Simulated assay, not measured.
Amino acid sequence: MPDWLRTVNDFLLPYRMPTLMFLSGLLVPRSLEKPLTRYYWGKYQLVLWPYLIWSGIHMVQHIPAGPITNPQNWIATGYLWFLFFIGVYYSIAPFMRYFPAWCPPTFFAIMALALPEGHPERFAYFAIFFFSGALVATHAKLLDAILRGGWVIGGAGLVAVAFGTLATRVDTQYETWGAPFSICGIAVAIYLASRVNGRSWTIPFRFIGRSSLVFYVAHFPIIYGAWTLFTLWSDARPDTISIALFFLALSACTGLAYFQNIPPIKWLFRAPSFPSISTKKWK
């Protein structure tokens, strides 16, 4: 990886996955307005099902991730750990509403500090952002403070730039003490996105956003499979192959996203509905 690209990657590291977790948490209060049967059925269809499908594909394709027969390998499998984590967060979210909204992120912050390195620590660390998103969603004034901008966003922007710069020099990944600084960057990202929302040039990005599950689960198997073929048949430089793989994955995922509502492609990303389970009775 070129040094400049590694630097950009490290700068964004405190904000990329925390932002996705935060945005997922923003959807929790609205989702919980549904009856619990409908709520959990939706999470099974759109979270658990694609996780199981693509985890199986990943373990079959990527030997170090297997064997597929080992139940432990199905826990936070490879690049799909994000989907596993939010699946668990969504599962426990209905029980968290019996506590003040500030309790879950505080509880998981304490857990992240106490747990050893590895999946348990990461699980607690990202839960801070997920349930912080739910907290903001239940307090309109907090979200208004972000969207109105002004000195709040200006200050948050300075903090985010400083912390991102620090992340290029020091390993800050999964460090609980850095969570407040990451939230500053998330606030800036939300503010900037609100300012460009609806612009014509954002149409491709909104398409990707609405189909983010497709791009997320499908990109790695496409890249990994094509990389294996390219390295067998081509003597091209790795950076040249990487550029080709980027556009190949982008094109393939766009095609899958465009046809994602048509069986059997649909069943790669959403569990089939059965006649005995009708959403009409829950409306």
Rank of each mutant, 00 (worst) to 15 (best):
S194R: 05
L142G: 14
Y51P: 10
L248R: 11
P18K: 01
R270G: 03
L32C: 10
V159R: 00
A193W: 12
Q45Y: 07
L143C: 12
N261A: 13
F107Q: 05
P264T: 02
N73L: 11
G198N: 00
Y79T: 02
V170Q: 05
L142W: 15
K283W: 11
F130C: 08
K34R: 15
F123K: 02
V196Y: 09
G164M: 04
V217L: 06
Y15H: 00
P204M: 07
T37Y: 10
S91D: 08
P221N: 12
A114Y: 09
W41P: 06
I190H: 02
G56D: 05
G178P: 02
D235R: 00
S212Q: 00
F123D: 03
L213S: 03
P120K: 00
I146T: 07
E175Y: 05
F123C: 02
G25Y: 04
P238Q: 08
S55F: 05
G198M: 03
S242M: 12
Y90T: 01
W201G: 02
A226V: 08
F215S: 04
I75P: 04
A65F: 12
D144C: 09
V159E: 02
P35Y: 10
D239Q: 11
G25M: 03
W54T: 01
R195G: 01
W233G: 13
D239W: 13
K141G: 15
L229T: 12
I57T: 07
T168Q: 00
G155N: 11
G164K: 00
I53D: 11
I186S: 03
F246M: 11
H62S: 12
N261P: 10
L250V: 07
L52D: 07
A76C: 04
S276I: 13
S182N: 05
P94R: 06
R237L: 15
Y258K: 08
G225M: 13
L26W: 05
V217G: 01
Y191N: 02
L5E: 02
G157R: 04
P2C: 08
N197A: 15
R210C: 05
R195A: 07
G150L: 11
A127R: 07
S251P: 03
